[in-house]
């Protein structure tokens, strides 16, 4: 069972089921034929809540399913960080996996056939840096460089790019007042960038921000990198 797996995290299936198709379109344009792995979870929600036994049960199941692949592409920086940095200590059998996982955008950005992609999309989008991509995976510049390859796209960097949006998994449920205030601050930054659309590697941050923006009556369109690349492929007729 060698080859590439595309792992679609649990929350992506809940919040944006169409993202997997868009990610597949991009990977196929790169000449990959990934196998989709879904119906699983990296264990992070329980792990971050202090429930390590439960996290390891779930993480072990995922590690078993991903064992045979040469490369596992994950549609989330946060889940990638979990598999790379935390799961190995929790589930010893996940250790070999740590070196074989890539966050989707970072994987595309460093793909040997990246030059083949013709990417074009007119519009303005602000970039939201996910904390896990930035600090656990050090992938910010790689992803930004990838987005800059899209012709016609005006990518705006936020002034306070390194500040958290307030999602933080169960944090956003356990401390909603603080979490929403953090989101409002991020939205103010997006507003001052003049953007109505936001792109990020992590749908979790985006859903939190979009939900807050909608609740406050200021629409915000949120794009994952997979969404945006897929649209940019169409933009060139690919």
């Amino acid at each position: 069972m060698a080859g590439v797996a595309l792992f679609v995290p649990c929350y992506v299936e809940v919040l944006r089921p169409s993202e997997r198709e868009r990610a597949l379109r991009v990977l196929r344009a790169l000449g990959e034929a990934p196998e989709v792995v879904d119906g699983g979870c990296c264990g992070q929600p329980a792990f971050n809540s202090g429930f390590r036994d439960e996290a390891s049960v779930v993480g072990r199941s995922l590690a078993r399913r991903l064992r045979g692949f040469d490369r596992v592409v994950i549609l989330s920086g946060s889940c990638t960080a979990m598999v790379q940095h935390y799961l190995p200590d929790l589930v010893p059998r996940a250790r070999p996996l740590a070196a074989r996982v890539s966050e989707f955008a970072a994987y595309v950005a460093s793909h040997p056939r990246l030059e083949q992609l013709r990417l074009r999309l007119e519009g303005v989008v602000a970039y939201h840096d996910s904390c896990h991509l930035r600090r656990e995976l050090a992938g910010t510049e790689l992803v930004v460089a990838l987005l800059h390859r899209i012709q016609g796209l005006d990518l705006r960097r936020l002034r306070f790019e390194d500040e958290c949006c307030g999602f933080g998994g169960t944090f956003s449920v356990k401390l909603p007042e603080v979490s929403v205030r953090m989101a409002e601050e991020k939205l103010a930054d997006v507003r001052s960038a003049g953007a109505r659309a936001l792109v990020s590697t992590d749908l979790s941050c985006l859903a939190h921000l979009e939900a807050t923006a909608r609740g406050l009556g200021e629409p915000l369109e949120t794009w994952t990198v997979a969404d945006l690349l897929a649209a940019a492929l169409e933009g060139t007729g690919a």
């Binding site: 089921p17 007119e122 519009g123 007042e177 109505r196 939900a211 909608r214 406050l216 794009w223």
Partner: peptide, 27 residues
């Protein structure tokens, strides 16, 4: 007890209007 304004995001994903309705930045 939670005064939480968050409303369900669009489960269909982005439509593209947002990309075309930007204004100039005012940093």
């Amino acid at each position: 007890g939670a005064a939480d304004p968050r409303t369900l995001p669009d489960l269909r994903g982005p439509r593209g209007e947002g990309l075309r309705s930007a204004r100039p930045p005012h940093h």
